[in-house]
Design a protein around this nucleic acid. Structure first.
Lengths: 226, 226
DNA sequence: GCAAAAGTGTTCGAGGTACACCCATGC
DNA sequence: GCATGGGTGTACCTCGAACACTTTTGC
C-alpha cells in the first residue's frame, strides 16, 4: 500500500482574554500571502517532530508573547478548499489568558498583534471566523459545567469580577444573591483578608480559586455547574 | 517561507452499536503491517481532495459495510510517535449505528470485522484504546443532554429498550416511573398503536422518535436533559 | 449627605426522587 | 395459576428563581 498524500497539518489558536468587562481575543496581522495584511488567528504548520500542543505554544511565542493559562483542543477543520495554496488541515485550540499577561508584542511572523473585543471583530482570513464561532460556543458551554472562568481572572479577584465575567460571556443578567450563594456553597473559593476598592463604592473582599480542592472534589464525584 | 512537512493525515472511526442490552463497537483485523493481524479501529488516510467526513465514510465502506446513522468529530490525536511508520495525525470520529445495520462483512482492507462488547475488548493497535476511551466518555456525556440515544435504536422501539440503553451506557440503575414521566414530558416520542411482545410478559407499546419536532423545539430554546 | 458598589435572607413553586401495586400475556 | 415484563400515581424534599434593603466607602 503506497501512501501519497500532500496534505499539510497546521494548528490555530483562539486566545481569549477578559478585560474591561469584555471578552477579547488575540489576532495577528499576516505578514505573508495569502491574506497578507489581513487579520487571522495565531497559528502555523506543525513541525515533523513536535506534538500539536507544542506547535501551538511555539507559534504563540513566535507571533505574540502571551502566557497562556489554559489550553484545550477545540475542533479540526479540514475542508479541502479552506487554504487557497494547498490542502491544509487545521487543528484548532482555544486558550485562556489571565489579565496579567495582556501585554503583547508582534513577533517574527506577524506584522501586528492586537486584542479585539469579540463583539467587534475585523474580517478574518481563511475560515477563521467559523473557528472563532466554534470557540465561543465551546467557551460558553464549558463555563457552565467547569470552573474555567477563573482562568480568565487574576489570581486574586473580586467576587463581582467573577459575576460580571459570567454575565458578559453568557450574555445574560445574573442575580447577585443567588449566584454568590451557589458559588460559595461549592467551597472552592478562599476569601482573603484583603480588600480592594475601585475608588468608588464600598471596598470588596478578594477571593482566590482553590484549584487543588477542585481536583480533590472532582475525584470524589463533585460536579461543578452554574 | 518554505513548508517542508511529512506528516500524514488519517481518520479513525469509533462505531457504536447497541444489541442484547450491551454496547458494542466495531473493530477490524488489520491486513497489513504495522500491527498486522491485530485489532484496530476502522480508518485510513485522507485523500488529497476529500473532506474528513468523506474519508470516514469511504473507509467505513471499504473496510466494513455498516450504515451510519450519526457521525461526529471526536478529537484529533497527534503525538509524534503514535504510528511506528511515520508521523500520522489522526482525526477521530464516533458514529452510531442502528441495529438494522448490524450485519457487517470484511471488505477490501480488512481481514475480518467484528462487533465487540465494549466491556470486553481485545488489545488494540496504535493508540486506539485511548481513542475508544475518549469516545465512550463523549458518548456518555452526550447521552445526557442530547437525544443521541435514539440513533442506537430501531425506528420503532419499546420504551423499555430506551430505558435499558440509558441504564447500560450510563451504568446506573434507573427508576422506570420517573424516567418514563420525564422522557414523555418532552413530547418528542410518538406512541404507536402497535405492540410487540418478546414472548414473555405483557406486550409493550412501540414508540418512535420525532426528530423534526426536536429540531423545532431546539430552535425555540428547548434543552434536552436526562 | 449622596452616589456607588458590596453584602445579605426569605418565600415560593417546580421538579427530582423515592417508592409498590395491578395488568396483560405465554406457558 | 404462575412467571415475566409493562404500565401507572403520590408524597416529600431539594434547589432554583424572584425579590429589596442595609452597609461601607469616596467625594
Amino acid at each position: 500500500m503506497t501512501i501519497h498524500q500532500t496534505i499539510k497539518v497546521a494548528v490555530d489558536a483562539v486566545v481569549f482574554g477578559y478585560r474591561n468587562q469584555a471578552l477579547h481575543l488575540l489576532l495577528i496581522q499576516r505578514k505573508l500571502e495569502p491574506y497578507q495584511g489581513g487579520w487571522a488567528l495565531p497559528g502555523g504548520f506543525v513541525l515533523d517532530n513536535e506534538s500539536l500542543e507544542a506547535a501551538v505554544h511555539r507559534e504563540l511565542s513566535e507571533e505574540t508573547n502571551v502566557t497562556i493559562n489554559y489550553l484545550e483542543q477545540l475542533y479540526t477543520f479540514g475542508q479541502p478548499n479552506r487554504d487557497p495554496r494547498f490542502r491544509t488541515v487545521a487543528v484548532a485550540y482555544y486558550a485562556l489568558v489571565k489579565p496579567e499577561a495582556f501585554a503583547i508584542a508582534a513577533s517574527t511572523d506577524a506584522d501586528d498583534v492586537r486584542w479585539f473585543d469579540v463583539r467587534d471583530l475585523p474580517d478574518l482570513a481563511f475560515d477563521h471566523a467559523e473557528i472563532i464561532q466554534h470557540a465561543l460556543q465551546r467557551l460558553r458551554g464549558k463555563l457552565r459545567y467547569e470552573p474555567v472562568g477563573f482562568g480568565l481572572l487574576s489570581e486574586k479577584f473580586l467576587f463581582s469580577d467573577f459575576e460580571k465575567l459570567y454575565a458578559t460571556i453568557l450574555d445574560k443578567p445574573i442575580d447577585r444573591r443567588n449566584f454568590r450563594k451557589k458559588v460559595l456553597s461549592f467551597g472552592l473559593l478562599t476569601e482573603l483578608n484583603e480588600k480592594r476598592s475601585d475608588g468608588k463604592g464600598r471596598p470588596a473582599n478578594l477571593f482566590q480559586f482553590n484549584e487543588d480542592q477542585y481536583f480533590k472534589m472532582k475525584e470524589r464525584g463533585f460536579y461543578f455547574e452554574l
